[in-house]
Design a protein around this nucleic acid. Structure first.
Lengths: 245, 245
DNA sequence: CAGTGGTCTAGACCACACT
DNA sequence: GTGTGGTCTAGACCACTGC
């Protein structure tokens, strides 16, 4: 007889309820990125279900990359602060040669002018403040990416250009470690555009060159949008890679 | 005690072996797209394993979209000849408004000039013949996509422009129904380029306009490359959509 | 109703990591 | 060795489909 976790509503299967309970813990930052969660046996005992049911819940969370299983060691909360996750969301690759290692150069971090489109994407009211960050990323000296990033001031209170510049790792690892915000997934919209004069200098390209415009909305636990980026890629010697399944 | 399917090599788990056996059946066209495969119980009996083991094998194949499960009905071989699969590999979406319904217009179908790059992508020797197809796709009268398609002559023997033109559905459904070739996955490389004169007329755009170049290699069962496409998208009012997980 | 996939359990054993 | 996740089994019952 299954233990009824939520007897009132929901005809959802038990493992889905267990999954929701685990998700709630993650969302509440009770188990932090990089840490191990309790073993399957312990969770099964805690929630009064069988190990198999916990397993199925964890399986789904692992397939969504919220958790990472490691045989013999345990199950861990996914984190961007790891080598093998550096390219989690980066789809830019060189046409020939090895995978690239981009070098970061932050240009500015300011309070953004009100921008209804960005506010809407982040599900914020027009009054709520936004940071706006600019940066350039280069590969062996050549600038490849110009990027604008918008972040809600409320979640990223006190953010400064210096803090960004002095962080050694990835931006998403920075969010995780300084603002307890783990990015789970993202959606991108890609277009081809002509390079504007104001940006051309940053990319070392002629005005009017064709560049790839990639607009990204990134989400944390619970499908909450937290960050908007608009990047311009120089694709003369690189491309955006995508797998369709 | 597990039934040892392949006692010689492979320390792979039982369900992986069952998965391979099912995959081989698909690859051999023993179970055709759209058809139901035997029930879990029947497969379990046939391979002398428990239902749970068959289930895990099918689960993986379903998550790779090779099979589709339908509760109460059975498990079916995935097919492109279905309404809900029409946009399986199409990532182009209008900036505003509903999902689009593209109209096809085939321009030509010829024996291609030798092309080492395409041959290499399709893992063919330079001598093996290739078809080359051109088409334009439009949305409410406006041309949006210009596309070149390369196919190996051996697999698509007797292909003609008329056959393509008279096919009412999707190209991948055509391959499936006329050439017993089901596309399983694809890889795309995306760049921004300037529109050439020879193609500009097809897209109703000025020479030198920025357009999205999408090069796709599509694979059938067993990771065998079968088709190369190079598409140019007019992204003034559309975009390429991508989800990062 | 019978047949299908979907869920849940309990228990056994394997593979791996740490100590 | 102990503890973790990974595999496999056997059997029960549920949910959905179609006759």
């Amino acid at each position: 007889m299954p233990a009824v976790i939520n007897p009132v509503a929901s005809f959802s299967p038990l493992y889905a309820q267990i999954k929701a309970l685990i998700l709630a813990r993650l969302q509440a930052s009770e188990w932090l990125p990089g840490e191990a969660i309790p073993s399957e046996m312990e969770l099964a005992a805690r929630y009064l279900v069988s190990q198999g049911t916990v397993r199925k819940a964890i399986d789904e969370l692992a397939s969504e990359s919220l958790l990472v299983r490691k045989q013999g060691k345990g199950t861990f909360v996914a984190t961007h602060q790891r080598e093998d996750w550096h390219y989690r969301f980066l789809r830019l690759a060189p046409d020939v040669g090895q995978q690239l290692l981009l070098k970061n150069h932050f240009l500015l971090c300011e309070i953004a002018k009100p921008n209804p489109r960005i506010s809407q994407l982040l599900q914020l009211s027009a009054e709520e403040g936004l940071f706006r960050i600019e940066r350039v990323q280069s590969f062996s000296g050549k600038p490849i990416v110009f990027e604008e990033i918008w972040l809600p001031v409320t979640r990223f209170e006190g953010l400064t250009l210096d803090a960004l510049k002095s962080w050694p790792g990835l931006t998403y690892a920075f969010y995780e470690s300084k603002y307890a915000t783990h990015m789970v997934r993202a959606e991108e919209q890609i277009k081809a555009t002509s390079l504007e004069a104001s940006i051309a200098c940053h990319l070392d390209l002629a005005i009017g060159s064709s560049v790839l415009s990639v607009e990204r909305v990134a989400f944390t636990y619970g499908d909450q949008p937290v960050e908007v980026r608009r990047a311009l890629y120089d694709t003369t010697e690189h491309h955006y890679e995508n797998k369709l399944n």
